[in-house]
Amino acid sequence: MEIPRHWRINPQRYELIGEECPHCKIKIFPPRDVCPNCGGEAKEEYTFSGRGEVYSFTTLYDGPAGFEEMTPYTVALVKLEEGPVVTAQLTDLGSTGVEIGMPVEMVTRRIRSDGDERGMLIYGYKFRPVGFTTAK
């Protein structure tokens, strides 16, 4: 199990907390120690809105260890409205076909379990089509 490793990035997984560069003001996700834009030290937290659009996508029919039971699943590059691109699964697609440019929003879902039977469940961000409503 990798408890410290997953616990450490809960702020990113649960709330999309990245950074705003104090020098050039660009938004950064995931957090980095040095701003990729201006090279200054990056350290001020910034919470992303979770809104964005699909930049690209693919589907996995065979998953690597930890993801085998989830197949098939769709992974996308999502361009957040603040600028950065994140890699994340798309969820709640129903019969919706995925297209580049499709607006999506962040939701919290189970990512996988860490280890076998008694493994810790890991939750984190996925993205769903905007306008999706949960069927009751």
């Binding site: 693919t58 690597p64 992974v75 990512i111």
Partner: peptide, 17 residues
């Protein structure tokens, strides 16, 4: 932390590109 935990693989990465 930010690709593999989304379930991505090298082949899926090529699929995205």
């Amino acid at each position: 932390d930010y690709e593999v935990m989304a379930g991505l693989t090298p082949a899926a990465q090529a699929g995205l590109l």
